[in-house]
Write a protein that binds this DNA or RNA. Structure first.
Lengths: 291, 291
DNA sequence: ATTCACTATAAGCCCTCCTTATGAGTATTA
DNA sequence: TAATACTCATAAGGAGGGCTTATAGTGAAT
């Protein structure tokens, strides 16, 4: 049938107000414009919707039936617009993040805290898994984006972007300690604070030490980088941590200049080329990049 | 928000077809027109609904949500149009008729038979009651129209129209009987066939006879006018019936010319000024007037 | 009879939406 | 790797339609 849908809006407003004049005020158009629209609608439907009188516009029986449908339709449209606005304003939405366990602790937790403070109504769903599995879920559309730290991924269906480069190193508090250590095998002289052996970060470090024919023997082993940083800050010893993380909490902490190069942690963001990011995801990624 | 509703139709068709080109074919407009409409809709909403690619148009997450609402809305509009058409074509509808008991038998039954044959899907609801009660129901909008035979009704909220004038009289079949009777008191000479005493028609007749200082003594008393007509036709005697009704069944039947004037039955149609007649009612009234 | 409160009609203008033509981007194919 | 073949986007111009103002028409009320 394909009747101009705007005519339905006019019909609805006239039926609701029972007067063309009132409808014309609500729609910000003139009364004759209303009259013409109603006439056109009735002509195209092939029947009468309204009874005209000097008391206004009354619906016919068929018009009443019609009104119920049209009212429902316009309410749906209204809901659509409102919902869209909610998503846009981030008062509604969901984010499905894939993130390696390491990076969840290293980065995501902080970002999450900030984001949730600003947009408390967005549901956040975090999947921790092997990067390869996460990438797969991303391709299947099960995840909005993935944060990982491997660079050897080649996928034509994904957009990959390096969003962060985290420098790691040995940190100390110059208040309590001097930068006397220059090589990795001298580290055992100090009070060394490392993460427990099961952590990825510790494994990497042990591997580097091994290449140097050394084994690092920590005086303290703790669970989180945060703790290492705190211990270093109060002068308990030298710790291994992400430099940026350490400096974020305590600007005074410094990095030991040792001869062995310790590789940086590259943080990548992966998104699906064929699935758009939701408003919420876009905002979250903005937070990811700036925090 | 008041976004042009036609944009929603375009959105719907594009989302459904996943290609602007296909949508343009369905809507019989050019592809650039589609492109412009989608662009406009997105601008007015303030966000993206589609992901464009060389493979077509894919919905964003927000777009998918949007689609569900818009689809629902357009289906409602479609239902409204279809339902309206059904009412218009009289494949759907209801008629609420108020009719005095006498006239129901005299007129309505025949009309009903024809109407129902032509429009079997229209529900018909008949209320038999005193005319005054029917008129009241009509004013309250409980009835679509009322058929009655009193002329002393004055109602400003109703349209009253005389739709039929039924002549009553004594009928005979000239094959078996001669027109020898000239006055009402001579009728008892013949084999008189009347309705039973409880019928209104008989009561009227007895009243007229009484005014003539006569009492009619039927040789046969039957229930319906139809039976009287049939009996008269096969030559059983002289009957009292509605002339038009008699002639409809048997054209050969004739009316006795007697000196006493027998009043006609005036049939009136009453409708409510402030409530429109449904398509079905209009058609039924057309049948009423022609049958 | 006059006024009032509506809607309908008329005529003209301007906007907007559509059209054609073209551009730009990205897979697919040879 | 160049050609091809799909997309959708952009540009510019023209025609139709919906808007406006002004006025007529209608029925009810005073």
């Amino acid at each position: 049938m394909n009747i101009d849908l705007e005519l339905y809006r006019v019909f609805y407003v006239v039926a609701k107000n029972k007067h063309m004049i009132k409808a014309s005020e609500e729609l910000h158009i003139s009364q004759p414009a209303i009259s013409q629209s109603i006439k056109k609608l009735e002509e195209q439907l092939g029947g009468t919707l309204f009874l005209r009188s000097n008391k206004g516009m009354g619906l016919t029986e068929e018009g009443k039936m019609f009104y119920e449908y049209v009212k429902g339709a316009l309410e749906l449209i209204n809901n659509a617009e409102n919902e869209f606005t909610s998503f846009k304003n981030l008062t509604k939405g969901e984010i499905k993040i894939g993130c390696s366990t390491t990076l969840t602790k290293l980065i995501l937790v902080d970002v999450l805290k900030e984001f949730h403070k600003d947009y408390p109504n967005i549901n956040i769903n975090i999947t921790n898994n092997l990067t390869s599995n996460l990438i797969n879920d991303l391709k299947l559309g099960k995840l909005d984006f993935v944060i990982f730290n491997e660079s050897n991924i080649k996928e034509t269906n994904l957009y990959l972007e390096k969003i962060k480069e985290l420098k790691q190193g040995f940190i100390y508090n110059p208040e309590f300690f001097n930068d006397e250590i220059n090589s990795i095998d001298e580290l055992n002289k100090s009070t060394l604070i490392l993460q427990k052996e099961e952590s990825n970060s510790r494994k990497l470090l042990d591997y580097i030490a091994l290449q140097n024919n050394t084994k690092l023997i920590p005086k303290m082993e703790v669970v989180s980088q945060e703790l290492i940083i705190e211990f270093v800050n109060i002068g308990l010893g030298v710790g291994f941590a992400i430099i940026d993380l350490a400096n974020k909490n305590h600007k005074n902490l410094k990095e030991l200049k040792i001869n062995k190069k310790i590789p940086n942690i590259n943080v990548y963001l992966g998104t699906n080329k064929f699935i758009s990011l939701t408003f919420a995801s876009k905002m979250f990624i903005k937070y990811l990049k700036t925090i």
